Amino acid sequence: MDLSIKGVPEDQVRRLRERARANHRSLQGELRALLDEAIGTPRPLTIDEIVARVSGLGLPRRDEAARLIREDRDR
């Protein structure tokens, strides 16, 4: 679907173009990214975001897995 916004001030258009350029996107791509952000459209998580979420879960680290298995086996 196509959308149209009329009467956008030149200053806003200039800032949108600057933002798009800074994000290596076209103006259309930047507008779609802003819409996604505004309405909560899911986007793929970055590696850093995944690490932050998993770290917050308090799960044992990989190196602890062997220790836990050995403890269980030795009971």
Rank of each mutant, 00 (worst) to 15 (best):
K6Q: 13
G29S: 09
P9R: 13
A20K: 02
R75A: 10
G7Q: 02
L35C: 14
A20E: 00
R62Y: 09
A22R: 09
R21A: 15
R61V: 07
E37A: 15
R25Q: 09
D48I: 02
R67F: 02
E10F: 01
L59M: 11
E71C: 03
Q12L: 13
D63L: 05
L35D: 04
A38N: 10
E37F: 10
L31A: 13
D74F: 06
D72W: 15
I5Y: 01
P9I: 05
E64A: 12
R70F: 03
R62K: 10
V51I: 15
I50D: 00
L45C: 06
A52C: 10
A20M: 05
R17G: 05
E30S: 10
L27S: 13
R17K: 15
I50R: 12
R25M: 10
Q12I: 13
D63T: 08
T41E: 11
V8T: 11
E30N: 11
A66N: 05
R53H: 08
D63W: 04
D36F: 09
L68F: 07
V13Q: 05
T41F: 08
A20I: 02
R73K: 09
R14Q: 05
L3T: 03
L16F: 04
I47G: 02
R32V: 15
A33I: 07
R15W: 00
G58Y: 04
M1A: 09
R70P: 00
R21S: 11
N23L: 14
L35M: 15
A20F: 03
R75L: 11
V13M: 08
A66I: 09
G7D: 04
I69E: 09
R62C: 03
L35N: 06
R19V: 01
A22F: 01
L34H: 09
I39C: 07
G40I: 06
D74Q: 14
L27D: 08
D63H: 11
M1R: 06
R17C: 07
R14M: 02
V8W: 01
L68N: 04
A20W: 01
D36G: 08
D72S: 13
I50G: 01
D74T: 14
R15Q: 06
P44N: 11
A22N: 10
L57H: 05
H24A: 14
R15T: 04
A20Y: 00
R53W: 02
I69K: 09
R61K: 15
R67V: 12
D63S: 11
A38P: 02
L68D: 03
G7C: 03
P44G: 12
P42Y: 06
P60Y: 03
P60Q: 07
P42G: 04
L3N: 03
L31R: 02
R15D: 01
